[in-house]
Each structure stands twice: as C-alpha cells, then as structure tokens.
Simulated scan of single mutants.
Amino acid sequence: MARIGTPLGGQRRLFVAQPAGHLKIIFACLALACLLTGGRAEAASFPERTIKVVTPFAPGAASDVELRLLAARMSETMKVPVVVENHPGAGGVVAARTVTNAPHDGYTIAWVGNNTAIGVSLFREPFDPRKEMEPIVGVSQFAYLFVTSAKSRFKSLKEFIEAARAHPGELKIGTSSAGTSNNLAALLFTLNMKLKVTVVPYRGPAELEVALLRNDVDVVVNAYGGLQGAIKAGQIRVLAVTSGQRDDRLADVPTMAEQGVPDFDITSWNGLYGPKGMPKVAVSALEANVTAILKEPDTIAKFKRLGFEALPVPHEKFARRMEAEIKRWGSVIDAAGITRK
C-alpha cells in the first residue's frame, strides 16, 4: 500500500509499503510453478476443438477417400471432430492458401502431395511449402502403372518402346491433366528413353479409361486406384510399375528398370502440412497420432484396397522428401519445356 508523509522541511513525499518477506517467497513459488507446468498445460490443450483438413482433391478421388478414412480414425483417437474440406483448383494453390490464411494454431492443416512439390516450378506465382508451411507427417505413397488395352498388340513395355522407335511421333500416352504427377512421369519416361511419343492429358481417370478402351491412346499412365476396376474386369493389361520394387498385388508385372528404363523409380505420396509457425505441440500431437493410426492393421488393409501404402514419415524426413521432389520435378518441367501457368 502507499501513504503520503511530510518529513522535515515540509515537502510531501510518497512512501510505498513493500510486501513482507513471506509474500515475496509465495510470489516466487507461484512464478516457478508456472514455468514448470506451462509446457504440460500446453501439451494437454491440443486438441480441444474441431480440426479441419483442407484437400486440393475433388470429392470421390482416391486420395480424397484415403484422407476421409484417416480423418474418421483421427476423430476417434484424438477425441475431437476431424473434418475434411475440398478446395480443388490451381494445382493445389487454392487449398494451400486456405490453410496459410487461417489462424496458425494447428486447427487448420493441409493434405499435400506431389502436386504441391510440382506447383513450385509449374506456376508463375507459386506456393512454396518450404517457406510458408510446416511439415507434420508423411502418410502414404503409391506407384503408377503403365497400362494398355487388353486387345492391344503390346504385350510388354519393351514392345511399346521398340514400336515408338520404329515409328517416331505415331504413338500416344494418355495421362491426367498437364503438370500432374502421372503426366510428368510419362514425360520423364519419353525424355529418359529419347522417344518421340505424344503425351495427351485428360481431365480425369474416367476419361483416361475411355480413351484407352476406344484406342485413342496406346498406353495410359495412372495410379492403381484409378485402374483397379478395369484391371479386375480384364479390360486392360498392365505393362509396368513405376516403383523400384514389384507391387505384390500385381506380382507378375515387372518394374520399369526390369524392362530397360534406367533411373525410373517413381512413387507419388500424400501427407499433412500446417501453416508456418504453428505450435510445436500441435505438430507433435498430430504426428504421433497419425503415425500410430498408420501402423494399425485395419488402416493398412483399407489403404491397400485403395492402392496406397500406409507409410508414416517423421516430419523432418518428410520435409527432406518435399525438397527432393521439388528439385526433381522442376528439372523435368524445364527439360520438357513446359510453360509456367
């Protein structure tokens, strides 16, 4: 408390009473307790409410279905709703901006993939995850397949390569839209093998399948998830898998390397990123939770049926993969002469 006194000389002065010694001790103990428990209190506070995962994929796409399976399980294990929002468009930039413009508190996060890495080199005004986001955890990966119609004359990828060399400019490869992972995989194949083949982009898996069965293209490059119906129906023949190892669902199908295509180990991937500066406690909680889910036999089986390999990747390693993919696909885009959008 304070009181006003009048000392000798008549000047008025303000005197402030100091707290007693035991009060100083109490205040010090309270301050120390706050320091010691602050980290535990923060850790216990995440999550406290709904988590939103923003995806660049359209509803019903294989990667969208995969994410919804993961989100449903996260809701159960994290004890808060985990909802999925679809924001397709501009090669994933729309979805990414939705996340970076939201509060950086860990409650709005992004579903990212190869398209995110590709976009850094593909767009004039790119979104760069290395500068604007934080890695949380890698979730899955999947290879692409080179397929042809069951009625095609090509019984192997080697036969297709031989025909392309014998008749330059005549053969066509169908892919998803320009700049997507499977589109660039097809371009990389033609560059590596020095083939004059026309790569034709289509808007989605349904159009690709129709084009192949109608013989508008000779070969299609797509993920297993977008082809499994036609594979099981016996409508298409699988010529090669783009990963370094054979796919156990297609054990008789050789890899690209086994058919003379060098330096062609391509797997696409999906995972979670958050806005730059999101709380580390949120990163840790999400990473630990998702990693545990991806090790569950039921999750592994569900992902496999969709064509994905459940593969948890720690956030530091996931950041390194993003960096490597940005460099790799940037080189392909430059070599193919693709104009920035």
Rank of each mutant, 00 (worst) to 15 (best):
P19D: 14
A20L: 03
H22D: 13
F27Y: 10
T37V: 11
E42P: 04
K52P: 01
P56Q: 04
E66N: 09
M74R: 06
M74G: 06
T77S: 12
K79N: 07
V80S: 06
V84S: 05
H87S: 13
P88T: 10
A90H: 13
R97F: 06
N101R: 15
P103E: 09
H104T: 01
I118D: 07
L122M: 07
R124A: 12
P126L: 00
P129H: 03
M133A: 10
G138W: 00
G138H: 05
K151Y: 14
R153F: 09
F160K: 09
A163P: 08
G169D: 03
L171T: 09
K172V: 09
I173G: 01
S176C: 09
A178E: 15
F189K: 00
F189R: 07
P201T: 07
A206H: 02
A211S: 11
R214V: 08
N215H: 14
V219F: 11
V221G: 14
Q235G: 01
T242Y: 04
Q245P: 05
D247Q: 00
L250W: 00
D252F: 00
E258M: 15
Q259C: 12
T267V: 14
W269C: 08
G274W: 06
S284W: 05
E287K: 04
T291P: 03
A292Y: 02
E296W: 13
A301Q: 13
L306P: 06
K317R: 13
G330V: 07
G330S: 06
G330D: 04
